[in-house]
Amino acid sequence: MKRIVDNVFGLAVSVVAIATIGLLVIPLLIATAMSFDSREFLGQFPPPGLSLQWYKGFFSDAYYLKGLQVSLVLAIAATSLSTLIGVAAAFTLDRYDFRGKELLSAFFLTPLVVPHVIIGFSLLLFFAAIGMSDGMLPLIGGHLIITVPYVIRTTLASLVGIRKSYTEAALILGATERRAFWKVTVPLSKTGIAAGAVFAFAYSLDDVSVSLFLTGPKLYTLPVAMTNMMRSQFDLRIAAAAVCLMAVTIVLIWVLDRVAGLDKVIGQGIYRK
């Protein structure tokens, strides 16, 4: 009886896993196929022929290209700052004991559970109150808030497996705390740091909820441009833009695999002997 229950449970888990993967992958495949549609209009799937016309339209449209440029600059700036802040915060939370440590940890991770619409609207009111409702700084601040938690979580996962005795041994051998941090701690936790940076970049590049409140007619991101075009002029250039964003994500995963090793980031998560 127990064996039958285990088999049924295993089958149910497999069905749910396959269905979940299908719901994630099939829409992406359909969007990719439709981005090569040879028709001049949005028609039924599958497309009768293939063409690069929608990609040519995307890369020749100044509105989309400006959004892409802003998104890349914003993602690079937000990732750089969130990596610095996230690594410092994770190291402090892991290595030091102080009053309010748990409260501070929960505060840093709050953006993971608070709806981003609320974060975006709150930031809009805040920056408007201090006279900074326009420009790149509000966007960087908003993306910094939503990307730092990913760097902190992945870095903390790497630091968990690093014994404090390693740093203490470096200090005994004459290294300063700063040198021990850069020569011992950072190399051992590089997989978590790299993973956090990649997640931060991808999340920043793809964000709509926060960016929608902090952009304007002259400064906007590519996802916001896609959202606006869906309301006014819906065509398959949006599918081409989506495929381009997916391609950037795939490249990031490849870079992460080459730099840190994807099996280490996903499979192990923390440093192991």
Rank of each mutant, 00 (worst) to 15 (best):
Q44M: 15
P46V: 06
P46N: 00
P47E: 06
P47F: 00
P48L: 06
G49W: 06
L50A: 11
L50R: 06
S51D: 07
S51W: 06
S51Y: 03
S51A: 01
W54F: 08
Y55S: 03
Y55L: 05
K56P: 07
K56A: 14
K56D: 06
K56R: 14
G57H: 11
G57Q: 01
G57E: 13
F58W: 09
F58V: 12
F58Y: 08
F59W: 06
F59I: 04
F59L: 15
F59N: 02
D61N: 14
D61G: 04
D61Y: 04
A62K: 10
A62C: 07
A62F: 14
Y63C: 01
Y64P: 13
Y64D: 02
L65T: 05
L65A: 07
K66N: 04
K66P: 03
G67M: 04
G67S: 01
G67K: 01
Q69H: 14
V70K: 00
V70E: 09
S71M: 02
L72G: 13
L72F: 08
V73F: 04
V73K: 15
L74D: 04
A75H: 04
A75D: 01
I76S: 09
I76H: 13
I76V: 12
A77W: 07
A77H: 05
A77G: 03
A78F: 02
L81A: 15
L81V: 15
S82Q: 03
T83F: 06
T83K: 10
T83Y: 05
T83M: 08
L84K: 07
L84Y: 06
L84E: 13
I85C: 10
G86M: 08
V87R: 01
V87E: 03
V87I: 10
V87P: 01
V87A: 00
V87T: 07
V87K: 00
A88N: 10
A88D: 12
A88T: 11
A88L: 10
A88W: 05
A88V: 11
A89N: 02
F91L: 06
T92R: 01
T92H: 00
T92Y: 08
T92E: 11
L93R: 04
R95Y: 11
Y96W: 12
Y96P: 00
D97L: 10
F98T: 08
F98L: 00
R99H: 14
R99S: 10
G100D: 08
G100A: 07
G100L: 03
G100V: 07
E102I: 12
E102R: 01
E102T: 13
L103Y: 04
L103G: 09
L104G: 02
L104N: 13
S105F: 04
S105G: 14
S105C: 10
A106E: 12
A106Q: 12
A106Y: 07
A106R: 13
F107G: 15
F107N: 14
F108P: 09
F108D: 09
L109I: 09
L109R: 04
L109S: 03
T110R: 15
T110I: 14
P111R: 13
P111Y: 02
P111V: 12
P111N: 02
L112Y: 11
L112G: 13
L112T: 08
L112A: 11
V113C: 05
V114N: 09
V114M: 10
H116K: 09
H116W: 14
